[in-house]
Structures are given as C-alpha cells and as structure tokens.
Design a protein around this nucleic acid. Structure first.
Lengths: 189, 189
DNA sequence: CTATTTATTGACTCCAGGGTACACAAGTGC
DNA sequence: GCACTTGTGTACCCTGGAGTCAATAAATAG
C-alpha cells in the first residue's frame, strides 16, 4: 500500500547513466539530474539515497548491459575473429558520441579515491577479459587463432587495447585510426 | 622593479601537478592548493589566473617531463626492446602510487567537454606514439623487431596498451599482471 | 469514510567552492 | 626619503552544489 511511484526506477537509472556518461560524476549536479530524469528532487533523494548511490547504480547497470551485449556478440558460430573485432569496437565506444566508456571515465576520475567505483570497474574488466579469453580459446581450438601465445595473455592485451582506444577516442583521435589500432592489437593475438 | 615573488612558479606548478594527479581536477579545491603549494590565495590567483589555468600549466608540464623522460629512455645503443619495455612500464605508472597517468585521468574526466585538455592529451599521445614508432623502426632496421607489421600500427597498439594499463592500475589490477599484459602487447609487435 | 502508509513537490537551508578586494610589504629609480 | 610598481595575506563575497522538510497527493485496509 501507500502511494505508488510515478516512475520506474530502472528507467530513471538508465537516464542518469546517460547524464553521468556525458558529464562525469563531479560535473553532474542534482539539478541536472532533476532536469533530465523528469522527477523531482524529493523523489530523487527519497528513492536513491544520494547522488553517489545513484551513480553506483548507474555504473552497475552500465556494466551489466555491456557484459550482456558482449556475451551476445561473441557467442554463435565461427569465425570468432570478426566477432571479437566488432565487440572491441563497440566496447571502446568509437564513433558518434566521443564519451568513451563510462567505467573507464569513472575509474580515471575517481578510482584511486573511491573504492566502490574501483571495485565495479575491476569487476567489469575481469568479465570482459574472461569473455575475450574464452572466445580466443574457441578460436585456438578451431585453428583460427594461433596458439603460440596463451589465451590469457592475449585477452589481457586486448582488454588494455580497448580501454586505451576508449581514452584515445575522448582525446579526439580519428575513429579510423582507432579501428586500425584495435585491428593491430587483435591480429597480434 | 616591484616586489619580487617569494616562490618559483615552476616549483609551484610541480606541486600543483601532484595534487591534481592525486585528486583530479574537480576534486581539488583552491584551499587544497593553498595548503599544499605553500603560497597564499592571493598569490595563487595573481600568478595563475584561475584554477583551470593552473591545471593546464600542470598538464603541459607533466607532458613535457614525460616526453623528455621517454626520449631519454629510448635513445642509446641497442637492443631497443628492453628500452621499450621499461618505457611502457614507466608511462603506465605501474607500481607504488596507483594514480595512473595524469593526462589519461584528465582526458577521461574532462576530455569531451574541455577542448584544451583534449588538445594537450592528443598532443602527448601523438608524441608518445611517434617515439614508439621511431624506436620500433630502429629495431626493425637492426632485425631485432619483425617487419611484418608496419611500425606505425605497432606504435599505435603499444600506445593503447600503455593507456589501458594505466587505467587498469587505477582500478586495482595486480602490477605483475599488468606487466605481463604490457609484455604481451610488446611481443606482438 | 477514515486511518495509515508511502510518493511528490519545490521552497528552503547550509556550506563550500571559486574568486575578489584591499591593506600592507618589499622591491626599484631618482 | 619618496614615489611607484608589483607581490602577499586574508577577510570577504557570491553562487551554486547537495541535501532536507513540511505540505500535499494517492494509494490500501478495515
């Protein structure tokens, strides 16, 4: 009982995610959120304890979406290399927006001071690396990818390349160059 | 004529650099700066127009130092691979502090909204890539590095790996793992 | 219909961030 | 010594960030 909420929390978190992604944590004000989420300040603080807590929810939601999309993109029939290629481009956020990856941005902004952010980031990075690794192992099993290098090493290198490309995208690098860079990292596997 | 300054601007910028590196731009308050630079607020704003301007000076100084150290580390007699290896570790900021790279942090925090920051970052990244490239070319000329892959492609991949490692360091990855990752990227060249 | 519970609204508070103003200090030229 | 110029130190100011609160609305139980 009691009055029902006029919005769905998940949708609001999705919108908050966009705002934080565009502006970063510190640069996003409660007023920004009120304006863009379409709910009042009272509801905001009633539903989500604080700006920081909402931020954490947004980070986790972003991570979950990314992991799901990655799993979907990598599964399916071979060949696996083009799948990896496409997945890397998506993760790096190359193209249209130039906001990079929300998690990368957040860990760079707050990582050394905010343990909860660092933890979410480490978690996402570990999951991406694991997904890369299993894809590489599949490719090695089918002979599509050389086995001279351990799959774990290659997966780590690909993860670093994706993160690096995400940052480079924010600094204004040419998307075509970044695609070449990612391809170079991938071909080296 | 006029009263002489009681401090040297360069030293103060160096100290400011440390503070911004530890805390990021938004999280650093004028009071923080006053406390750590050892100069009064009046001098601060008289010498450096604004917090943002001081920040830019700090970024540029950081870049200049990095580029100089990189050039010094890469020059000298062969073999060039161990030099690259060491340079990458230094650039990624693996080890003690866990603050990553100041430029990477700054571009991730402000890059898509602050053109001047993005420009300094792009500049540094270009210079690092160029230094990598010329080192790789030297290695190729002496047969130390395979020439199957264009030096430019490898240089881009190494740059992305270094940036990625810097971010991973902030999220709390094990330094030993990061060193493996960097080695994997380097061996792939 | 009333009591109770929970959401919403938006005015309000509190404080810190970023910067300014001004009185004073420390130099130089004459 | 005196004018002039340029730092220094600090009290002060203003805005906006983050969050709270009291009044009100919308539901359910009985």
């Amino acid at each position: 009982m009691g009055r029902p909420m006029k919005f769905e929390a998940e949708e609001v978190v999705d919108k908050a995610l966009e705002v934080f992604w565009r502006q970063g944590f510190a640069a996003t004000t409660p007023q920004n959120l009120v304006d863009e989420l379409g709910i009042g300040k009272g509801s905001l603080y009633n539903t989500f304890k604080s700006k920081h807590h909402l931020f954490e929810l947004a980070l986790r939601r972003y991570s979950a979406k990314r992991v799901a999309a990655l799993a979907e993109g990598l599964e399916g029939p071979e060949p696996v290399l083009p799948r990896l290629r496409e997945a890397m481009r998506t993760l790096a956020g190359i193209g249209d927006h130039r906001f990079g990856c929300l998690i990368v941005n957040s860990v760079a902004e707050l990582g050394s001071a905010d343990e909860s952010v660092a933890a979410v980031a480490k978690d996402l990075f570990d999951q991406i690396e694991a997904a890369f690794r299993s894809a590489i192992e599949r490719g090695q099993a089918s002979g599509e990818i050389t086995s001279v290098r351990p799959a774990g090493d290659s997966a780590g290198a690909l993860l670093a390349a994706v993160i690096g490309a995400s940052v480079l995208a924010k600094s204004g690098s040419d998307p075509a160059d970044l695609n070449r860079t990612l391809d170079a990292a991938l071909q080296a596997s």
